[in-house]
Write a protein that binds this DNA or RNA. Structure first.
Lengths: 132, 132
DNA sequence: TTACTTGCAAAGGCTTTGCATCGCC
DNA sequence: GGCGATGCAAAGCCTTTGCAAGTAA
């Protein structure tokens, strides 16, 4: 895979399948889900390997880490600045983009002298299907 | 304390001192900090008690829970809608208010049919003092 | 070959739970 | 006195780490 090659990472089965999974899911998945997916593909991968893989991908900026108040982390392939709509009824997590952070950066810099490097913004509520 | 009385909670030393601490700190503190504070006040409080206290306060909406990518939760006295500036250099967490969420609620409702109940918004970067 | 990856086992950090006792109202 | 609150001990989840063996380049 190009992503792995570009990051100077060795191309192993576990990494290939995990990346493919992240790409296919296109939503924040947790370590356990990655592990389960690998095992479905007959890979006897260890939990420790998954966490080390995640650590490596984070360092190489291949994935990003998110939190949704679950007491655990979720990961998603890096991409454009975007946020999430978390349905508290069905658990579905949908992407949403353009949060207008630029405005905030200016205001916060001026008012507080604080320089924003990055931010987290997640919305919790109820998705359309669950409202029916 | 009025807060405890209004919530129909028994007024115990641990709860009184913990609430006073949360009020004084006015920043998101974690369970361990609450425990340490209680012990400084000669209370041989157990860690389990702190977590149960937190659970109760959350249910009664006396406090709110936040995450800052630390793999643990932090808690702050409930109040107006506000967010945080997390300095990644010194760790200081500062409050900031008015995130203009109303705009978002309208847009998200219209575009995605998603109803926002609450949200989390945190900024990470470097505070004024750490820039020197 | 050789440095990077992985498996296995153990531990570590944060949080929750069962149960008997204690204490606020 | 009664029911909620607490202490103690143990366990549960998620994540990290040490070390030896395996493997991609």
């Amino acid at each position: 895979m190009q992503l792995l090659h570009d990051a100077h990472l060795k191309i192993t089965d576990a990494r290939k399948i995990a990346l493919h999974y992240l790409e296919k899911e296109a939503r924040p998945v947790d370590a356990e889900e990655i592990l389960e997916h690998l095992r479905k593909h007959k890979l006897a991968t260890d939990r420790a390997t998954v966490y080390r893989m995640i650590e490596t991908f984070l360092e190489k900026d291949i994935i990003n880490r998110f939190e949704f108040g679950e007491g655990k982390f979720r990961y998603e392939l890096s991409g454009s600045d975007h946020h999430h709509l978390v349905c508290e009824h069905c658990g579905r997590i949908e992407d949403i983009s353009d949060c207008g952070i630029e405005e905030w950066e200016k205001v916060v810099k001026k008012k507080k002298g604080f320089i924003i490097k990055h931010h987290s913004l997640e919305f919790f509520g109820m998705c359309r299907s669950c409202q029916r």
